[in-house]
């Protein structure tokens, strides 16, 4: 199933120029200075572009409201922390924060569990219904959500879930799981099946093989999908604005929208709240990204 086997066909004739070739897992010292500059230069430019608008949001959050949209473009104007004080003190921000954490954490945990089992089944077993199922997963992503909101609301209402956090968790899962299952299937595909077979010969059942052998090897993949599920739930607005009706049950992203009504939007509070929202997501990534580096070690060390 994997294409890696094909790499045996590497053209042996290609002659590298002596010292220039560096091992990918090699230390940084072997990179020539020119290459280093190019590499870091590119990454610095990319990072600047990435954080540029965020810096703008951060700077805006320190301005009084009237100075955010203005003819004279200034980076800093009458800096103040009043916006943060208002957001933290006068609104239900902390409650929304708690709600978002609950929704995002459950979406992440439940999403990973289901998509990992599903992805594994799709990757390893050629069961009847496998290909149609993968197609069905795709089709569920093809019908625009904007059009589905009203019928989904009716279903949620029939289940008695309107104005509850589980309604959001379930709705978020319908976005996250099909994608994560597909992703994980892709990652599982690149883990050699010989490992499963070895485990199976050792007497592991399919669940045990999955749990004890494959899952630990797929840590980087799990980290990616975990992060994806978390952020999907963290930033989701469409379902939240349809299903949630009480201020104390808002999620952060939806709560933030309350600051910017169509007329007389309070940009200063939106930006301050956005900064407060970005920080925890950044911290989650900081921890998740460690798993991105510690994937498969050489050879199939047994899990």
């Amino acid at each position: 199933m994997t294409q890696i086997a094909g790499t045996g066909t590497l053209p042996a004739a290609a002659v590298p120029r002596g010292a220039r070739h560096s091992r990918p897992r090699d230390s940084r010292s072997s990179r020539s200075p020119a290459k280093s500059i190019l590499l870091h230069g590119t990454l610095i430019v990319a990072s600047l572009i990435a954080i540029g608008p965020i810096v703008w949001v951060l700077l805006s959050s320190l301005k009084p409201g009237y100075a955010i949209q203005s003819s004279d473009l200034t980076l800093v104007k009458d800096p103040t922390l009043a916006n943060y004080r208002y957001v933290l003190g006068e609104t239900s921000f902390l409650r929304w924060f708690g709600n978002s954490v609950v929704v995002a954490a459950f979406t992440m945990a439940v999403g990973i569990f289901f998509s990992a089992t599903t992805g594994y089944a799709l990757s390893r077993f050629n069961f009847p219904g496998r290909r149609p199922l993968m197609m069905v997963f795709l089709v569920t992503q093809m019908f625009p959500v904007a059009i589905l909101i009203v019928p989904i609301y009716t279903i949620m209402a029939n289940l008695g879930l309107i104005n509850t956090l589980p309604s959001l968790i379930i709705a978020n899962l319908t976005i996250a799981v099909p994608f994560c299952a597909w992703m994980l299937k892709g990652y599982f595909d690149s883990i050699p099946t010989s490992l499963d077979e070895a485990a199976s010969i050792d007497g592991c059942g399919p669940f045990a093989t999955f749990w004890r052998v494959v899952l630990p090897l797929a840590r980087p993949a799990i980290a990616v999908t975990a992060f994806y599920s978390f952020l999907t739930a963290w930033g989701e607005v469409a379902y939240a604005s349809a299903f949630i009706q009480e201020d104390r049950k808002f999620t952060l992203a939806y709560g933030l929208q309350q600051f910017v009504p169509q007329f007389n939007p309070q940009w200063e509070y939106l930006t301050a709240a956005a900064v407060l929202v970005t920080v925890p997501a950044g911290i989650v990534f900081f921890f998740a990204q460690r798993h991105l580096v510690s994937g498969l070690t050489a050879g199939g060390t047994k899990g």
């Binding site: 990319a46 990435a50 954080i51 608008p53 965020i54 949001v57 930033g235 952060l252 929208q257 990534f285």
Partner: peptide, 18 residues
């Protein structure tokens, strides 16, 4: 890695406004 991934952490509608 952290800097480059930050755009993802901002709720999309806030970025859209930015």
């Amino acid at each position: 890695r952290i800097l480059l991934v930050l755009p993802w952490a901002v709720p999309a509608f806030v970025s859209a406004f930015a």
